[in-house]
Design a binder for these strands. Structure first.
Lengths: 193, 193
DNA sequence: AAATAACTGTGATCTATATCAATTATTTTT
DNA sequence: AAAAATAATTGATATAGATCACAGTTATTT
């Protein structure tokens, strides 16, 4: 159950067996069925989730009722509403399993304890955030400068595995375009090459 | 020279005098004249900069030659190309002073030493990154769901001080719209109210 | 295996914002 | 204070992508 987490942590910091055994106790495993929600808009995002198996997405619904996907989280990724988690404010995000999934949940107090007892974890999370920030900045710059087609090609090339597991209209929502536009782009691409 | 940095660090972690004195040695002060560059596209971003005085921006130029502003950095903010800083790859960003400014620079090896000698800094940077990530995610979601007018109102309300110090066409570039569109939006807003 | 629900494709039309082009402020430099 | 550079405004026109509407597929559920 904790193999992938262990492996991922080890890529960034090295833990003694004792430290990792303590770490285990901080998490609660949970299984999710396809379409099950880990967090719904309006609730407080009490957990950060590490995905051991399956695939989740976090998204938000705007004033006009349109969904916008912030993140897909396949195996080995973290997903949460960080703002809600750290402030205890109600979340504006939804987090939903797109496949039957297994996640490891950590709540705020366990997380605080973990950092206190194994300070190396400050570094682990710092590195994760750093990488996530760089990727999010790229996505933002791209969303301001690229055409719909460029975005589509970029993300299917960057996350080919993940994009294949996800329905097209969600890819569109992730890219910030409509499903109709994405459908037309795919048609064009298949015709020209 | 180090007052603001000291104050800002203290908001997140508490340092002994000894620790802060060590911290000082990690930074090099630098004055920048208006329009002077701290980093140019193609060079490696060797420093993270803390702004003690003045105002900088980081931006990127896309394939069509259009500028896109990632960040304005007034007093108390950090600015850098994190990707280039951590990987030593050439940067695709430019960082330019928009006013005469004073910054504190820290290079990679000093930064590594600082984290090694004062591990509390892991937490300081983790918290900075966390806040930055949340803000960048918001900006991304906004860029996908809001109209040009909504974006304009949101950012002038969120950063009123900063937005007033910056020429209009740069606000437009930050929002991801053209200067013409911004000009028309401002006209409408001034007419209707 | 039907029935239902979820997803994808395609045409017709609309719209917010971009682009192009020229004019008028406003700063900055000499 | 004039000249030069930079920034902002305004009009006319173009366009990428949105919206609407419906038909055809593919998955799930009963």
């Amino acid at each position: 159950m904790f193999e992938l987490l262990h492996k991922k942590i080890n890529e960034i910091i090295s833990l003694t067996d004792e430290e990792f055994n303590y770490c285990r106790t901080a998490f609660t495993p949970r299984k999710l069925r396809k379409r099950q929600y880990l967090l719904q808009e309006g609730d407080v995002g009490k957990y950060q989730a590490f995905v051991e198996k399956g695939l989740l997405r976090s998204y938000k619904i705007d004033d006009k009722g349109v969904e916008h996907i912030l993140q897909f989280a396949p195996e080995g990724w973290w997903v949460a509403d960080l703002y809600s988690f750290f402030t205890d404010e109600p979340s504006s995000f939804n987090i939903e399993a797109l496949e039957d999934s297994e996640v490891l949940l950590i709540n705020k107090s366990s997380w605080d304890m973990l950092l206190q007892n194994v300070p190396k974890f400050e570094r682990y999370f710092r590195v994760l955030l750093q990488n996530n920030l760089v990727a999010t900045q790229r996505r933002l710059m791209g969303s301001l400068s690229e055409t719909a087609e460029e975005k589509y090609l970029k993300y299917t090339q960057t996350y080919p595995d993940c994009m294949q597991r996800v329905p097209q209209h969600m890819i569109a929502s992730y890219l910030g375009i409509t499903r109709e536009t994405l459908s037309r782009i795919r048609k064009q691409l298949s015709e020209k090459k």
